[in-house]
Every structure is written in C-alpha cells, then in structure tokens.
Design a protein around this nucleic acid. Structure first.
Length: 853
RNA sequence: GCGAGCGUGGCGGAAUCGGUAGACGCACUGGACUUAAAAUCCAGAGAAAGGUAACUUUCGUGGGAGUUCAAGUCUCCCCGCUCGCACCA
C-alpha cells in the first residue's frame, strides 16, 4: 500500500484547528508536581499593526524550545500578550482621527490572527494586554506598595526631555544624546518627577549578574558597565576664603599629592551661588548649560573652565594652596559634582592643566623607570607604579597607597572611603495620555496621597482631546479634580502616566496566573518563576532587562513572590536583514517591486532601472522589508520557520533571501513526497534484530543525538543541516525487501519527530500519513540508542608531517601496532617515504596516525 | 578613547576535546525525464600548476610570528569589520 499525498493547501489550518480543539498547549492551571516545569517566553510585541520578520524569527526560536521541552516531558508555559501602551497609538489616533484604545485593540486583533496563522504553541487562554484596566490596576497597587516602602518617591530634577515625544526619558532611554525611539536630540528640563529607587538594589543587581550563567556574556557586561560601581574616596577640602568645604569623589586617593586644581560642575551649588555676584561665572555656566548632551559629545576635547577666586587647603599639607575652577567636563549627576585634578595621572585633567598652565607633578613612577628626572608632558601615566613626591606614601604601589591615603584621611577627619554608582534611579513619569495613570492624589495639605486601594484602577478617561498642546490628561476638564482621600479637601490627581517599561517589568509574572482578582497567586508564581528561557532582541540589554530585574526584587520585598531574578536563561537573537534597492535618484524601492531581467534590476511598476544597495536591517524607512503574511500565504508558515532557523545561528544577524526561502519550501515538499512514495511495511521494525553495523540505523540514531544536542545548545542551523542529511539518506533507501520497507518507515517516523519543533504542521501531517492517530506534539521525544552509534570499522586519516596522505579503515579491536602497520602499508605513504625510515610515528586510535620524517 | 565580539569557498555557514578543513544549504555546471519549460531525480565542484586520463604536486580558515608530531582551534603582535559605553573623576 502506498501512502497517499495530502491536501497541501489546507494542511496548516487543519493542524492548527486540531491543536486548538485538543488544548494541546495549555499549561496546567495549578502547579503540576509530577512534571518538571519549563517557562519559555518571547518578548511580547507592541501591537503596531502587523507582525514583521523580526517577530517571526523571535517567535520561531521560542516555539522550537517550547515544543521540544513539551516533547521532553516538561510542563511547559508558553504565553503571549501585548505591550499595548505607548506613544504610537496616540500618534496614529491623531493621524486617523480615532481613539488610541480602538486603534490598539484593532491592531491586536489583526496581529493575533497573524500569529495564529504561524501555528505557534501558545497557551492563548493566558493572553494579556497591558492597556487593559484589569492589567494596569495591579501595577497601580504595586506602585502604591513601592511608595509606602520608600521604593518610589518624587523629586524635582533635571530630566531628559524628548522634544518630539514631548515627554521625559530615563537615562537608559537616551542613546548618544538622542531619544531611543524618536531619535531627537534630548534637552534638559527641570521637572517634578516620580522615581523608582533602583539604586537601592544597585549592589545586588551587580553582584548577582554572575549568577546568570545562561545569559550572554555581552549582556552581562553591558549591565555591569551600566551599573558602574566605582570604589574610591570622598575627600573634603577646606576653602581658604570662606568657612566652607568642597567634597570631591576620587578613585585615585593615592595621587592626592599631585593635585593641582579643584573643578566644580557648572550646576554645583557653590558654582551657582558664585554666579549670582560674578557675571563672568554666570556667563560661563550658561554656556555650559546651553551645550546639550549631543553638543558636549562633539566638543568633548575642549576642556574649558573658569577660576573662581577661591582656593582650598591640601588636606595632607596645610601649606599647599589649590585653586578652584568651574569646569565644563565635570558632571553634577556623578559622584559629588566636584573633582580634584591630578594632571600627571589623568588625561582629561592633563588637558585641562595644559590649557590653564597649572602645575603637573608626577606622583606615580613606572616600575622600570629608575632615573629621578621623571616628567609628564602631554600623556598622562595611568598605570600601576611606585609613588613618588608624596611624603608618607612614597615607595608604595598604587593599591597600597590608596588604602594608606584613605586611612590618613579618616584619621584627620578629611574624608572616607566611598562607592559611587553610575546607575541612577529610574524616572517613571511620562507626560502622555496612553499609559497607566500614576495612582496619586496631590493635596495642598496632605501632600502626595495614594489613591485608596478599593478605588483602583484609576482609569484613563475616554473623552480626551489629543490635539491640545501638552499632557492630554492635564488638559482634561474634569478628570484630575478629586477630593483628597485624607482630608476631603479639593485636590488634584497626578496627571503623568508611567513609562511603558513599567508594564513590561512584570508581565512575565502575570502570565503565570492571570486571575481577575489578583495580579497573580504567590505560590503559582513561585512555581513557574523564573522564566527558564527568555528570547528577544539585544536592544533591551539594559532597558527592559534591568528594569525587570529591579522590579522583581521590589515585588519580592513587598511580598508578592519569592524569587528575585526574573530570567534564568536569556537568548538574544540577531536581526533580520535584507538587500536594499534604490532608484538612480536615490529613492528606496520595496523588494517586491524589483524584478530581474537580463542580469539587470527593474522596477515592476514604472520599469525604470533599480540598483541594489547594502544589506541592512529590515526597516520601513529603507523599504527593505518582506511581509511575513505574503510569505505564509505563498509558502506556508513551516517554510518561513524552517528558513528562519536554517542558515544562521540564532544569535547572529541573518539575511532574508528568496532563494533561501524556496530552498526551505522544496525541502518540506520533498519530505512529503518521500512519505507519499513510501510503502507501509507489513510489520513494525524490530530494533533488537537489526545488525548494529547497519549504517542507516546508525544515521537515524546519530541524527537523534545531533538534533537533540543542537536544540539544547541553540544551534538550530546545525539541526536543520542534520535533518537534511537524514532526509537525503532516507530518500535513497530502496523498498525492495520487507526489511528495507520497515527501515524506511522507521526512519520517516524519527524524521517527523525530529522536525516537529521546526515545522510542526508538516510533522503532524507526516505522522498522520504514517498511520498514527496521536498528535505528534504529544509524542515523547525520541531517544538514541548508544548501541547503534559505535561502529566496529574505524576510518581515520594518515598524515606525514601533519599533512594528509590517505586514510585507513581498521577494526575497532586492532592494536596500535596493527594500525601503524596498516598506515605504513598505504601506497601513498610508501611513495612519499621512498624507503626512508620514519623518525617517529604517532598513533592516536580512532583519531589520527601521523608519521614524522 | 575604553570594553566586547567577529574574520573559513562565489554566498550563508559546519568543524566548540588541538587530530581527515569546507558538513548542510544557496548559487553554479553537466546529465536524465519532457515537444518544450517548470518541477523532480542523478552527478560534479576550495585554489593553482602538470597530465589524454584515472590522477599527481603545491597552496589554503584576515596578515605575521610562536608552542606542538599535529593549529580554523592555544599564545603574542598587527590589520579590518560590527556592537556597547563614553568628559563617570
């Protein structure tokens, strides 16, 4: 009997319906103690309207893991939801004269259908949308808990203002002086803002990075640098002209004797007070403030300052006087906003000193420099060495001198050891409408009062005017006017909303138990958390991932759950790239509008010649995008999925190519064709009776091993290569004898199972065609039998002086002498030796023979 | 400037324990099938030189040195590309 070809057109839909009907991918509602749990999560999308290739890659990777873990007996949680607050909804609403909520929900509907057409193994019963009051009411409660624990607070501060988005940005969201999304040059603005006390966990967030063994090293490094712990000392300098002191932070207290100036930040309190009576200082400070972040980058080499007419006394030598400057390169936000300059051992200080003719006294000498005439001219010496010109520190190395200097500072009450962090608290206030309202009521008398818990959620008003300038909530005629919950006086609501990273900082816990009455159940969250494998783009390395690590710790402190680390394993996938096309006047052309004729490219619509440009990340602005839907329609989602993982390793950038997609399509068709032509054997193969030297059975079991190990280590591209190899071998098998039929049938069964995480629809189809009633997604992952992997006949290479001359085949039981004899008897070896006696022969059984002459 | 990663055929990439470099795929070439094309199937192929030929020799993992019987893999130096951070005291 020949197995019949299936109806290809409805193949995918058919199996998607079966999975849905069978609830194949529902995670257990309550902890399942019989099975180990496995939580796979892909970064949930912003519902922008349509899925793009980046999503396809991301979700394919996650789906491979989810299906594979399910087959391996895990209780798998694999949910999906929508990061649905955010500015694009407001912009779209303005452009299309609709409401952000309507626009968002329509997009979700479309994208949900698109995702479903990909056959991803999500437990859709746990779907969440963060703009739903049933979601954000819980985070309002969390914020109030944070507020009461002192983890959330309000302060007036200089903030990064994005003039395009007309809102504040956190430091992490400013990249190269520009807004992370708008790309607009960020300005400085003084505003009253809510902050989350991320610095409270700075030490913990830093120390525990090393526990994240399944995270990419570079992401850990980026977080490490972002948190930026610096050990050093605070040193107090007494001002001569008045009864005040200046405190500086330094990592080099060992170089204190080389200090030749003090520099204050332009916005340092002393600078500001001096500016009141000194017009030239005032002008200088204004100039510094005018330089926005990006200009500072451009002018980074120009070290400018102004003398304040103040001097300080050196703490270790009362007879030494040090001038105080205000300098443009000192930041108020870091350390104490003041530094001491030691030009000999800091390049920046040296540049400054040279500009203003300040003394340059070397106090650290390189080890190998024995002469007494050591001088610094225009390159600072920053390495370790021996301390000189430094009284009681002389002769020490840098490390010991730091310690000795701090001891002395403490003894004379002029300083102490201290730690400074680059990490700052997370500013969460945004002056936007489409975000979660901050649940605070501002009362004249009572101050900031949390909204009573039973009044949550504070819902967004529906009737808003997005076209009025400023914050729409603030401009709303009624919404903000309420009575104070404390004293019943008229008061006002906080009209800022949360940064949308707030919602994505806990959504992964909400998925564990999306209950109506609680954010989640503690014991259920403790069962599922942490996420075992998180997959997403590396662009969130310090934004979302750091916020989430902080948030989870804060929730734990408030008793919500027991874990503090949200993501045990992290995989950062590369970007999807594509060829760009341009017309000769430099306009971008969509790939689907390009056709090839006589080795030249032409525009399909106007027929003009088109030129190919660089391969770049797919982006709407360069038009080098391919719509996933058109691919799914034309080839099916399995083709897209196979192609997504077949060519490049997941963490590397990949190039989308039509040829590659067609290759994947042909491969899947080929598998179906082989099954179609396969004859059903009379009985099932008996593995106990097979000659273990049979190379087909060996290949089958080797493939199980290779694909299993490949998935475990995220080398999906290798898995696909191994599946091609197995397919090639199976397709070449004869079906003449009963045994050959049994073997081919068995090989196809294994192939179907191994392919099932990658091309699940085709795997189900094959499984079904082979006569199985079960769903392949419910079938246990195959195990390889070691018996078939070892072979009696060993083939190894024979080298002369490390160069390959041929290879020999011998029986596994052969002794070294026999192998050596066999190698020497090779004619190519004999020819090369020509009677010469080998100097040495190295025989490594099952690896190599190397003859040295 | 500091930090990290990468560099292998025409192309994407294998070879993660130092042991037969180039698996697998794409593109390419030849053949079969076909009136023809597509699809499919079979075969070939790192480069150079030599030979009618089966084949032989040499070179070959960005460049240079080193360790080793043996290096894509380990060490040092250099070049190039990508990413992150950037007046962080």
């Amino acid at each position: 009997m020949i197995i019949k070809m299936s109806d290809k057109k409805n193949l995918e839909k058919k199996w998607q319906e079966r999975w849905e009907k069978n609830l194949s991918f529902s995670a257990s509602k309550k902890p399942d103690e019989k099975k180990p749990k496995y939580y796979v999560l892909e970064m949930f999308p912003y519902p922008s309207g349509n899925i793009h290739m980046g999503h396809v890659r991301n979700y394919t990777l996650g789906d491979v893991v989810a299906r594979y873990k399910k087959a391996n007996g895990f209780n798998v949680l694999h949910p999906m939801g929508w990061d649905s607050f955010g500015l694009p909804a407001e912009n779209a609403a303005k452009d299309n004269n609709t409401h952000p909520e309507k626009w968002t929900n329509e997009n979700i509907k479309t994208m949900r259908e698109q995702l479903k057409s990909m056959g991803l193994s999500y437990d859709w019963s746990r779907e969440i949308s963060t703009c739903d009051p049933q979601y954000y009411k819980f985070e309002q409660k969390m914020f109030i808990d944070f507020f009461q624990k002192g983890l959330a607070y309000k302060k007036e501060s200089w903030v990064n203002w994005d003039p395009v988005e007309k809102t504040v940005l956190a430091n992490e969201q400013v990249i190269d002086g520009k807004g992370w999304r708008s790309n607009a040059v960020v300005e400085k603005k003084l505003l009253n803002q809510w902050f989350l006390k991320m610095t409270h966990y700075a030490d913990d967030l830093l120390k525990t990075i090393e526990n994240l063994v399944n995270w990419p090293e570079r992401v850990k490094l980026m977080q490490n640098n972002w948190i930026g712990k610096s050990l050093g000392a605070n040193v107090i300098f007494k001002i001569i002209q008045k009864d005040e002191t200046i405190e500086v932070f330094t990592t080099r207290p060992d170089t204190l004797f080389g200090a030749s100036f003090i520099a204050l930040a332009p916005s340092h309190p002393i600078s500001l007070s001096l500016s009141k009576n000194n017009p030239s200082i005032d002008i200088f400070i204004n100039e510094c403030n005018k330089n926005s972040t990006s200009e500072a980058v451009i002018e980074k080499n120009e070290k400018k300052g102004i003398y304040t007419n103040l001097d300080v006394i050196h703490p270790f030598d009362k007879s030494t006087k040090i001038p105080v400057y205000i300098a443009n390169f000192v930041l108020m936000e870091y350390g104490t906003g003041a530094i001491f300059g030691c030009p000999a051992h800091d390049q920046r200080d040296l540049d400054f000193a040279n500009n203003y003719n300040l003394p340059v006294l070397p106090v650290v000498k390189p080890r190998n420099h024995n002469k007494n005439d050591y001088e610094i001219t225009d390159t600072a010496f920053t390495d370790n060495g021996t301390i000189i010109n430094s009284s009681f520190l002389n002769g020490l190395n840098v490390k010991d001198a730091k310690k000795r200097a701090i001891d002395e500072l403490e003894k004379i009450n002029s300083g102490r050891s201290s730690i400074t962090w680059r990490l700052r608290d997370w500013g969460v206030s945004r002056q936007r409408y489409w975000g979660c309202p901050i649940p605070i009521i501002k009362c004249k008398d009572c101050g900031d009062v949390p909204v009573p818990i039973d009044e949550l959620p504070v819902e967004l008003p529906k009737d808003i005017n997005l076209n009025s300038p400023g914050n729409p909530l603030d401009a709303h005629p009624k919404w903000k006017f309420v009575d104070c919950p404390n004293c019943n006086q008229p008061a006002e609501r906080e009209t800022d909303t949360f940064d949308t990273f707030f919602e994505s900082s806990w959504y992964f816990i909400r998925f564990t138990d999306p209950d109506i009455n609680n954010p989640f159940n503690k014991s259920i969250a403790d069962y599922w958390m942490p996420v075992d494998q998180y997959i997403g783009g590396v662009e969130h390395a310090v934004l979302h991932l750091l916020y989430s690590r902080f948030f989870t710790r804060a929730l734990r402190e408030c008793g919500y759950l027991s874990v503090s680390e949200p993501f045990k394993g992290l995989m950062t996938q590369g970007m999807v790239c594509h060829q760009t096309f341009k017309t000769d006047d430099g306009k971008w052309v969509f790939p689907h509008n390009v056709e090839k004729k006589n080795n030249k490219l032409y525009h399909t619509i106007n027929g003009s010649e088109v030129f190919s440009g660089r391969i770049e990340k797919m982006s709407k602005s360069k038009k080098n995008v391919v719509d996933p839907l058109s691919i799914v329609k034309k080839y099916g989602s399995d083709t897209a999925r196979i192609f997504m993982v077949s060519d490049s390793p997941p963490e590397r950038d990949m190039e989308w190519s039509t040829a590659g997609v067609e290759g994947s399509y042909k491969f899947l068709n080929r598998v179906l064709r082989i099954v179609n032509e396969c004859q059903k054997p009379k009985k099932y193969i008996n593995l106990d009776l097979i000659d273990k030297e049979n190379n087909v059975i060996r290949k089958i079991h080797q493939s199980i091993k290779d694909v299993t190990e490949g998935i475990d280590s995220f080398r999906f591209n290798v898995c696909i290569a191994k599946l091609y190899e197995l397919t090639n071998m199976i397709s070449k098998l004869d079906s003449k004898t009963d045994f050959e039929k049994e073997l081919k049938f068995y090989g196809l069964e294994i192939l179907a199972q191994l392919i099932s995480p990658f091309a699940p629809h085709h795997a189900e189809e094959v499984w079904n065609l082979l006569g199985h009633e079960t769903l392949i997604c419910d079938v246990e992952w195959p195990k390889f039998d070691k018996r078939f992997l070892s072979t009696e006949q060993i083939s190894i290479g024979v080298q002369i002086n490390g160069k390959l001359k041929g290879n020999i085949v011998y029986n596994k039981t052969a002794e070294k002498e026999e192998i050596q004899k066999l190698a020497l008897s090779l004619s190519s070896v004999k020819n090369r030796l020509g009677g010469e006696k080998p100097k040495k022969i190295i025989v490594v059984p099952e690896r190599i023979v190397n003859i040295v002459v």
